Simulated scan of single mutants.
Amino acid sequence: MTDQPQGEPTSATVQVPTSERHVPVMLPRILELLAPVLEAAEHPVHVDGTLGMGGHAEAVLERFPHARVVGIDRDPQAIALAGQRLERFGGRFRAHHGTYDEVAAALALHEVGEADTLLYDLGVSSLQLDEVERGFSYRQDAPLDMRMDPTTGRTAAEILNTAEHGELARILKEFGEERFAGKIASAVLREREVEPFHGSARLVELLERTVPAASQRSGGHPAKRTFQALRIEVNRELSIWSTAVNHALDHLTVGGRLAVLSYHSLEDRITKRAMADGATSSAPPDLPVELPEHAPWLRLVTRGAEKPTADEVAANRRSSSARLRVAERTRATAPISPTGSTRPTRRR
């Protein structure tokens, strides 16, 4: 998946094979990092928490013939396309329609409670970017929808047309890291008094008028941050990911690995903190001896966040902002309670 639109979207009416519509990001490196687990387990279970068009899932099923895969996606169109692509693997593949924090429900499709490996490729998918009518891209006029699951939730247009100034400014500043959030919010409120927002072109024109020219020259397209912020708010991406990363770790078997591809600092920060908490002792600072229950229960497999190679970025511009982190569970922790995790957490 990706975070920033690159190139011109194509119409949904253009029939292109699913395998040609999306290039899985950092695929060889991800397979290399997951291989020690998937090759060692007798009947490993892999969760693709952001199935998309099934590129990463297909590679796992092909390389590890004893692996079973369950894919999670909130987008019904992605489920359908990936299902067709992976049909040849029969019962080794199952799909769960839902948000990526629904790990337990997804695992139940293979009648297991833990995964050997999990992968999350965060951000908006190529499928969603390339379907003009979904409204994710600021490069062509389209309805301001931006819902990853178009059957539920508020659209971006509804947020623009109903949010109060303070709420809209907060969304733009917090999720888009937009310096001119207040100024943009004021412009939106004035403009919607004339006519409610429906299409992306009108919003892009407003942003081009509102964001100072100097910032546009140095900071990229003036709509980039606003569209990112609206998409994150519409789909509750950060709040769901904050829950999902912990659910993923809680359902990871001992010796199992979690891999996460992030595309902007906000989601990477959540990933980094969750992994660092598990890889750090939770013992009180004045305790003379570390008790077993205070010992770290994760090992950081990657040193910081790995980036795609220059060759990959040249071949696939959508990979340019990707950051990969992988962690391995090293020991069991307290059982997961019905209301949440009871595993130890780092003392801050």
Score class of each variant (00 low, 15 high):
residue 328 E to D: 06
residue 252 L to G: 00
residue 276 A to M: 13
residue 41 A to M: 11
residue 14 V to Q: 15
residue 237 E to C: 14
residue 308 P to V: 02
residue 98 G to S: 05
residue 195 E to D: 09
residue 247 H to K: 15
residue 172 L to P: 03
residue 221 H to E: 09
residue 298 L to H: 09
residue 1 M to W: 00
residue 65 P to R: 07
residue 175 F to K: 01
residue 297 W to H: 05
residue 248 A to P: 07
residue 171 I to A: 05
residue 267 E to W: 10
residue 19 S to W: 02
residue 29 R to G: 01
residue 271 T to C: 13
residue 312 E to D: 07
residue 51 L to N: 00
residue 110 H to D: 13
residue 235 N to T: 00
residue 272 K to A: 14
residue 10 T to Y: 14
residue 156 A to Y: 01
residue 15 Q to S: 15
residue 131 E to R: 15
residue 180 F to G: 08
residue 91 G to C: 07
residue 228 Q to V: 06
residue 229 A to G: 07
residue 147 R to S: 01
residue 89 F to R: 00
residue 87 E to G: 05
residue 136 F to K: 08
residue 193 E to C: 04
residue 65 P to W: 10
residue 103 V to H: 02
residue 138 Y to G: 06
residue 163 A to D: 13
residue 56 H to P: 01
residue 307 K to D: 07
residue 39 E to M: 08
residue 82 A to S: 15
residue 109 L to S: 00
residue 172 L to W: 02
residue 51 L to S: 02
residue 278 G to K: 04
residue 223 A to T: 04
residue 269 R to F: 04
residue 126 S to H: 06
residue 8 E to P: 04
residue 230 L to G: 01
residue 212 P to L: 12
residue 12 A to Y: 11
residue 287 L to E: 15
residue 51 L to I: 02
residue 53 M to L: 15
residue 70 V to G: 06
residue 40 A to M: 04
residue 87 E to C: 10
residue 55 G to I: 03
residue 127 L to N: 07
residue 348 R to N: 09
residue 37 V to T: 11
residue 281 S to I: 00
residue 330 T to L: 14
residue 149 D to W: 04
residue 93 F to Y: 04
residue 184 I to Y: 03
residue 198 H to P: 03
residue 148 M to T: 10
residue 213 A to L: 13
residue 118 L to F: 09
residue 2 T to P: 02
residue 174 E to M: 08
residue 332 A to P: 01
residue 101 D to M: 07
residue 246 N to G: 13
residue 45 V to Q: 09
residue 347 R to W: 01
residue 105 A to K: 15
residue 61 L to F: 12
residue 327 A to V: 06
residue 227 F to Y: 04
residue 141 D to I: 01
residue 331 R to G: 12
residue 2 T to C: 12
residue 76 P to Q: 11
residue 83 G to M: 04
residue 277 D to S: 14
residue 98 G to F: 00
residue 31 L to I: 12
residue 258 L to K: 08
residue 337 S to T: 14
residue 277 D to E: 15
residue 316 N to I: 14
residue 251 H to S: 11
residue 286 D to G: 10
residue 200 S to Q: 06
residue 146 M to H: 12
residue 35 A to W: 00
residue 234 V to M: 03
residue 161 N to W: 12
residue 254 V to L: 06
residue 17 P to S: 07
residue 184 I to L: 00
residue 11 S to K: 14
residue 287 L to K: 14
residue 132 V to R: 15
residue 55 G to R: 01
residue 324 L to N: 10
residue 156 A to M: 10
residue 85 R to H: 06
residue 219 G to Q: 14
residue 248 A to L: 08
residue 209 R to H: 14
residue 57 A to H: 03
residue 219 G to K: 12
residue 313 V to P: 10
residue 36 P to G: 11
residue 246 N to F: 13
residue 229 A to V: 01
residue 244 A to E: 08
residue 329 R to G: 07
residue 54 G to R: 07
residue 343 R to Q: 11
residue 194 V to L: 04
residue 254 V to P: 13
